[in-house]
């Protein structure tokens, strides 16, 4: 009888220890994940302003291609979300259309669109985070700047990708209206660049995979991929973003990212 009691007791201690241990491990994983995200952000801070000319190719399930051209101007805002201007150049019926986004960490983004044919600047809802950008496989949220505070993290361990040592980090969006429950990102251990991201939908199923390639170093500090390829596993469609050139020497200021100057953006 005593022996049974001892076995039950020690079993209980064992279980308690196991739970405690996993709680500690969970906390560790969250802290480690956050640490990696912070380091990734730290290494990509201080670029100030950039401009990129982007060619977007949409591939249908049947293999047909459609090309879009746009320019993306970004401005870093210290201790806040960044600001961005997306200028549409092709298809030609939307040429001159501009989308301005002021990203925020604590509250929903502010967004405006300039419609050149009637010279109208319209404040629009930024709730459409999971909506398709220009009919592509990229959602609006996939194109917004990476901010540490937008996610909860979990470190999943080390991995290897194309012979490179990687950290595997899961993140859960904290902002509202996201189309994802979970992202898994492969970040290289040397430069903290995101090489691959898997997106899991609201049902928890694998929706898309984003693969980055052709990283180049700018200003001796900042790594930028020249190609981002997004594959949608559920529809069979995919989209390739080719960054034709990054320019880190632009002199844009906050005044260039105001909604009331969208009519003079070129």
């Amino acid at each position: 009888m005593k022996r049974i009691a001892r076995i039950v007791l020690s079993g209980a201690f064992f279980l308690a220890g196991l739970t405690l241990g996993s709680a500690v491990a969970e906390e560790d994983a969250a802290a480690r994940g956050l640490e990696i995200a912070q380091e990734r952000k730290a290494r990509d801070t201080g670029w100030d302003a950039t401009e990129a000319a982007v060619e977007m190719t949409l591939y249908s399930r049947g293999g047909s291609e459609t090309v879009r051209q746009l320019r993306i101007r970004s401005l870093e805002v210290p201790d806040s979300g960044s600001k961005s201007l997306i200028i549409f150049d092709l298809p030609s019926d939307v040429r001159g259309t501009v989308v301005l986004t002021h990203s925020h960490i604590e509250r929903p983004d502010d967004q405006w669109i300039f419609l050149p044919s009637i010279r109208r600047v319209k404040r629009v809802s930024s709730s459409n985070q999971s909506g398709a950008f220009m009919g592509s496989e990229f959602a609006f949220e996939d194109l917004s700047s990476f901010e540490v505070e937008k996610y909860d993290y979990e470190y999943l361990g080390e991995d290897e990708l194309d012979g490179m040592a990687m950290y595997k980090v899961a993140s859960t969006p904290l902002y509202s209206h996201s189309g994802y429950t979970r992202l898994i990102t492969w970040i290289d251990q040397e430069h903290y660049r995101p090489w691959k991201t898997e997106f899991y939908d609201r049902r928890g199923e694998l929706l898309k995979t984003l693969t980055a390639s052709g990283f180049s170093l700018y200003e001796d500090r900042f790594w930028r991929a020249s190609v981002s390829y997004m594959e949608n596993h559920q529809t069979g469609r995919s989209t390739k973003l080719e960054f034709k050139e990054y320019d880190f020497n632009v002199s844009y200021r906050e005044a260039d990212f105001r909604h009331n100057v969208l009519n003079r953006v070129n």
Binding site: A53, S92, K244
Partner: peptide, 17 residues
């Protein structure tokens, strides 16, 4: 039916237009 065409600086060779 509207047809659009253009002659422009090539922003895709020279990012800062």
């Amino acid at each position: 039916l509207d047809y659009f065409f253009e002659v422009q600086h090539d922003h895709y060779k020279r990012a800062t237009g």
